Amino acid sequence: MFNVPVIDISSYVDPHGSAADRARVARELDAACSTVGFVQVVGHGIPAATIDGLIAALDEFYALPLDVKKRYTRPGENRGYSPPKSESLSMSLGVAAANQMNDFYEAFTVGSERGWFAGLDLPETSYARNTWPVAAPGFRTAVEAWFAAARGVSRVLLTACTDALDLPTAYFDDLTDHSIDALKMNNYTLPEGEIELAGELTGMGAHTDFGILTVLWADQVPGLQVLDVDGVWHDVQPADGALLVNLGDAMARWTNDRWRSTVHRVDPPVVDGRIIRRRSAAFFFDGNHDAVIETLPGCASAERPGYPPITVAENIDAKLAGMKTGVAPEFADREAQRVMAAR
């Protein structure tokens, strides 16, 4: 039976967590990452007020008129506002929709900036400055608080992943000390109410995430679907108080697919023939732009050789080009075949 396990990571959040509890979490994490590629995380320590602030920020910005929101659009960049039907996430795998740019969500993205890392000569393409919507005065403070909280959870999870893979302590530190982190806040834009779905209608196209792992807050409404190893889609909703966490391509390539970067999508959230509103905020922990993704010790064999090396930035840039301009990546054949075979 398909199941996204719930894992309590409080022993890793607590600097004094017991070794026995941490060992149990590492075992549970390894089992989940080897099978489903998704987990539900509780005991993450993020205050309810920080979550409430994020929700209020989303509501404040997305209530603005479309022409106002479009003032914060930055075409071709992974920052600022993306209007509905301006992206196609399935093209990040090279899988074209019938109507190529057909994802019915709007989004606002912020992320790591060059100026955060003094003394490093980092590329603007990977560490662009952020745009903040002055028309939503409460937005920046609340979003920055959530960004910091989700960033903290992602680092806690990486520590647990390091233990689960039986790697030396701090193995990933040099690969993540100037990480490309991004927060993409989504709003599914079809108006609430009764509708008649006709033709291809996609909330967010089938895709894998690009980096190390993703920390997702989402409304407890239908929409998110995960593709299992048999090519069947399954509905997933967060448990009470849980954050959904999934692995990205960097971790799958590092582990030579011992751990899964699971294909997922969002269909229009429909309950009893009615569209209902859905919001989400995905924090992408992607790693340093110049970090080389090559097979970890013990994860390759003569029968199962590792992937060819690629940098984090090369992987992200190719997939963003697919999502935003429709240029299919050259190295996504494996994931594309899984999507095309799904039922």
Rank of each mutant, 00 (worst) to 15 (best):
A291Q: 04
R260E: 11
L247M: 13
A328M: 11
V266K: 09
P238V: 05
S280K: 09
N288Y: 02
D267M: 11
D290F: 06
A300T: 15
V263H: 07
V263M: 10
R277T: 13
G241D: 01
V236L: 14
L244I: 13
V312M: 14
A239M: 05
E294C: 02
L244C: 02
D272H: 13
W259I: 08
A281E: 04
G298I: 06
A318T: 08
P309G: 03
L244F: 00
H289F: 11
V327F: 10
A321L: 10
F284L: 15
E330D: 12
F284E: 00
R274V: 12
M323W: 07
D257V: 11
R260Y: 13
A313L: 10
G241N: 02
V271C: 07
G248M: 00
S261K: 03
I276F: 04
S301H: 05
A313Y: 06
S301R: 04
A318F: 07
L244R: 00
M323A: 15
R258G: 14
F285D: 03
A318I: 06
V270A: 05
L243T: 04
P329C: 13
V271Y: 10
G248H: 02
S301P: 02
R253F: 07
R258N: 08
G273Q: 14
L296M: 02
P309S: 03
P309F: 02
M251I: 10
F285H: 13
Y307W: 14
P329V: 11
R258L: 15
R304T: 11
N288Q: 03
I276C: 12
V312W: 07
E294D: 09
V245S: 04
R274H: 15
G273Y: 13
P309V: 03
L243W: 09
L244E: 01
A328N: 14
F285S: 05
A313F: 13
G298Q: 09
A318Y: 05
A281S: 12
V266H: 09
R260W: 09
I316H: 07
E330P: 01
L247E: 03
E294F: 00
A242Q: 00
D240G: 06
P238W: 00
A282K: 06
G298K: 12
G287Q: 07
R260V: 15
Y307K: 07
R265C: 13
